[in-house]
Amino acid sequence: MLGNRYAKKVRQKDEGEKPFWISFADLMTALMTLFLVVMAVSLMVVTKKINEATQAEEERTSEILDICTSMKTELAAKNPLITVDCKENRINFGEAGRFGHNDYRLNEAGIEALSTLVPVVLNAANSDNGKKWFKQIVIEGFTDTDGSYLYNLNLSLRRSEWVMCSLLDPNFNPNLTLTEAQKNQIKQLFLAGGVSFNAAKDSKEASRRVELRMQFYGLKDKDTAEEQPNFVSAPIEICQLPR
């Protein structure tokens, strides 16, 4: 009798514990399943964003290459002295873009090359792809290694400023005829900047040069394009450099 009574109590205890452990196991299984679902969805979202960003960057690169390639083809047909590097996004005029020793005045061949270049650049900037990505063109004047750093910095600034004067002041380049709208666009698109002798060439003659560096919007930069300062209303007047 005593043995049977104790055995019955043990069976009741086992039967009371079984539902608890079964529920706990189901809860852990459900939590693990939920975790896996959340992780799978998160991975899908991240992968989708990465693919979209990669595709957008590929489209941007392709469209910028189209801008540069079309300019390169057109300029090569009009003036063989002008070369366009679509890998570095740079434009140079070869010997036509060189300066004399301690001189900031561009030679006649360089001014002629500028006259050929400007309409092509403006057409490219006003194209569908150009309106999306063309940011600006930096005019970079270079010097040789003779003289002090600050002297050459001032000289390189004057060389880039001379190029800008040749774009906007008819007295410097009477062959270049621009409308007021085109002049305003040049004020926005072109930027004069000196770089001293930070990129000297093999010879001093080749170092004394001017180059144009094209800059394009990035995917994030495009959203802030409207925040750039506007110089359209600023008067042009005349160039301050002595001719």
Rank of each mutant, 00 (worst) to 15 (best):
M1P: 04
L2S: 00
K8R: 13
K8V: 06
V10T: 12
Q12H: 10
D14P: 05
E17I: 14
I22M: 12
A25H: 13
A25Q: 15
A25V: 15
L27Y: 09
L27C: 10
M28E: 08
L31F: 15
L31G: 08
V37C: 12
V38N: 06
S42H: 09
T47F: 10
K49F: 12
I50D: 12
N51K: 12
E63I: 05
C68H: 00
P80T: 12
K87A: 08
I91N: 00
F93K: 01
A96T: 09
A96E: 06
R98D: 00
N102Y: 06
Y104S: 10
R105G: 01
L106I: 15
G110W: 03
G110C: 05
A113V: 07
T116Q: 11
L117N: 01
L122K: 04
A125Q: 08
W133P: 10
F134K: 00
F134Y: 02
K135S: 09
E140W: 14
D146W: 04
G147C: 10
Y149M: 06
N154W: 11
L157H: 10
E161D: 13
V163R: 00
F172L: 12
F172S: 09
T179Q: 07
Q182D: 09
Q188C: 05
F197D: 09
A199R: 11
A200G: 01
E205G: 03
S207N: 09
R213H: 07
R213Q: 11
Y217R: 07
K222A: 13
Q228F: 14
V232R: 06
A234R: 09
A234V: 15
R243A: 11
R243P: 00
